[in-house]
Design a protein around this nucleic acid. Structure first.
Lengths: 153, 153
DNA sequence: AGTGTTGAGTTGATGTGTCAACTGAAGGCT
DNA sequence: AGCCTTCAGTTGACACATCAACTCAACACT
């Protein structure tokens, strides 16, 4: 288990990448919050539900799709229930379904255009189509590796 | 202010990139936390301080370097003070300096190798040198744009 | 029947991040 | 002098994320 540090070059590449991630994340979050009162987490859940048949999905499926821990999803759904964006329904003996409400759907539809515009403004329009494709390709490579990887060997 | 939605292609590129970011962030965080008890935020602050002359830096400078809000930095330093990783010192009449402690430096040095190894394992070793450079280049482009951009017009 | 395991969901404690509102010194302006 | 603005820092409330521990039904095994 040798652990070689990073070279200067690699360290710089990593830091700029990581800081970009962080800053991009907070900007997207702020824009969403300010324009629609939804958090990124809210938006993710609403988008997943809105694309599912009947706007309903099992909690564990939501967790799998979003790559979230189950308790994170639980707390999130609790908060969203309180605000009337989704409801919970029993499903079989050991299951729970989340269902998007009319209010949730409205909120999503109201938030979507400016969210898309912000993504475009901050990322997509800054890159050539080739750069975007390369970026997505690299992201896919890393993501697949992350998914195939058990957290602490 | 027309707001064109994203194409299917762009949406997929965005989603895979965003999810990669999220998952990478949590994995790095977990590895750090498990191996050394430091959070990513702790590590960032300690790394910045350790590279500064005398291991000390003004709070607002730390905030600027890390691209954090001032209250985020304040809360973070408060928590780190409580754990003995840094101390605070008055600096002039309206200033505050954060100083890394021996304990903080030890924690950083102990955490660094396995952190670097994890970054290498999850990202750097998955990409060819050309891919890493392209990735860093794209990140730089986006980061510069983010920095030059006032949040909401 | 009894035992053990797995999987979905829940809970509470704690740590982390954001926002708005505040203090208090410095500096500018008339 | 008086007033205004800016800047660094502080505070408290709240939202969000993570972890460990728990419930309870389903399933497997003997």
């Amino acid at each position: 288990m040798k652990q070689q540090g990073l070279t200067e070059h690699e360290l710089r590449a990593w830091r700029v990448s990581f800081q970009m991630l962080e800053l991009l994340r907070t900007r997207i979050e702020q824009q969403l919050q300010a324009s629609s009162g939804l958090s990124n987490a809210d938006y993710t859940v609403l988008a997943l539900l809105s694309e599912a048949p009947d706007g309903r999905m099992r909690a564990y499926e939501l967790g799998r799709e979003a790559a979230w821990e189950k308790s994170r999803m639980h707390h999130q759904l609790t908060r969203m229930c309180k605000r009337g964006l989704v409801t919970r329904e029993r499903c079989g003996s050991r299951g729970m379904e989340a269902v998007i409400t009319a209010k949730g759907l409205t909120a999503l539809e109201q938030a979507a255009p400016s969210h898309a515009q912000e993504v475009r403004r901050l990322v997509i329009d800054r890159l050539t189509p080739e750069e975007l494709d390369r970026f997505a390709g690299i992201a896919t490579t890393i993501l697949e590796n992350l998914r195939a990887d058990q957290p602490p060997g």
